[in-house]
Write a protein that binds this DNA or RNA. Structure first.
Lengths: 224, 224
DNA sequence: CCTACCGATCGGTAGG
DNA sequence: CCTACCGATCGGTAGG
């Protein structure tokens, strides 16, 4: 009897649009939640303020996210999704791994410079915020941070296997340094400390270039 | 008439001990305030919890610290005082500046390892917490962070003038890297990530050693 | 029996 | 150094 309706998806058995509107509300809530928690932290996020900012009821938020902790985790996940779309996704897999490593980090600095979030990178902000507070949120932060770290490590290792990165380079050491510079850059950007931010970007670029064999890069390998 | 009392200082014109007890209360309050805010952040510090933890009234705290922001700044200052006593003060001025630079950073890692504060170094924790929140607290955080950065820069510059550090070394670059590694180490220590903490300490030590001329250090100058 | 949303209010606690 | 309150807001939930 029922055909594909014009306004309902085949998987949506409810035809009055409640499910669709729910997804829309979730997106609006998370967008504002990211803005707030980028500046105030995930602990600074409150259901009441979030509701009044958007112009909806608190009950609406509770019904969509169960409780505050679930909202905080959903906010973190949504922020990481944006990060991933800006930094990770644009990279074509057909690039050489050494170029991809440089591009991942380059994209990261671009994404910070574009001020996608007012408080810099949510990954590093929440990493500091929950460093001493064990729980579900800390676990989720570590999960996301490890995903980023492992992406860089795996890319560098692949480059090393292909002979693009020197064999005496310790990949874990390289990634430790790169993420340390990113953490410093994220704070510098939020503080408006442009010189430190630019120094971090330059340091990252040259640190990677200094590990690469063969082709001389324009930046040179003048890591001191 | 009044001579130097046994229990009162000459500057204390009130002799019934109120000023002394006030200072004692301040010290007790600040000690607990540091413990709380090291873990929960300065924004996670609340007057009510602080009072009930110690077993005093909220009014007592308000009377000694005026308002919450003043309490937060006093807590930050008190934490930095502990940091300074552990890391900066023990160093004799008669040491060579290159040794002093290595010792400042070595002391910093020791102080983190000793878990003086549960949440690592308050300087880096608050630097992240207030990165996007302009105000008196952010100003104070920047003041303290600059003092630490400038201490390292001045020491390195002095070492360079005396020919102990290579002339091609950019001191600001060196200090940027050292403080980036410290920030990463502070978070790693709070998270219980010992490998990353040890890597940060080793990286810092070798980064400094790699800049030093003449005498070969035991660690070598194998910065890659 | 489900989801989405409302106005109102729950018990507690915030800074002052 | 205390109790006693205030205007407000917290996270969460009631009935409709």
């Amino acid at each position: 009897m029922r055909k594909f309706g014009a306004l309902t998806e085949p998987t949506d058995r409810i035809e009055d649009g409640r499910r669709r509107r729910g997804a829309q509300s979730r997106a609006i809530i998370l967008s504002r939640a990211i803005e707030i928690s980028s500046i105030e932290g995930l602990e600074g996020l409150t259901i009441g303020r979030l509701a009044s900012d958007i112009g909806i009821s608190k009950g609406n938020i509770t019904v969509l996210f169960a409780d505050k902790e679930a909202l905080q985790i959903a906010t973190l996940d949504a922020a990481v999704k944006v990060f991933s779309a800006k930094v990770v996704a644009p990279l074509a897999d057909d690039k050489e791994p050494s170029e991809r490593l440089q591009a991942f980090c380059g994209n990261w600095f671009d994404y910070i410079e574009q001020r996608v979030f007012a408080g810099g990178c949510m990954l590093y902000g929440t990493s500091s915020e929950y460093r001493a507070r064990p729980g579900k949120i800390q676990d989720r932060v570590n999960y996301h941070k490890n995903a980023w770290t492992k992406l860089l490590s795996a890319t560098a290792s692949e480059a090393q296997r292909r002979g693009q990165i020197r064999h005496d380079i310790d990949v874990d050491q390289l990634v430790f340094e790169l993420t340390s510079f990113q953490a410093a850059a994220s704070i510098a950007a939020a503080l408006g400390d442009q010189p430190t931010f630019l120094r971090a970007r330059r340091t990252s670029r040259e640190r990677i270039a200094g590990t690469i064999l063969g082709t001389e890069t324009k930046e040179g390998a003048t890591h001191q």
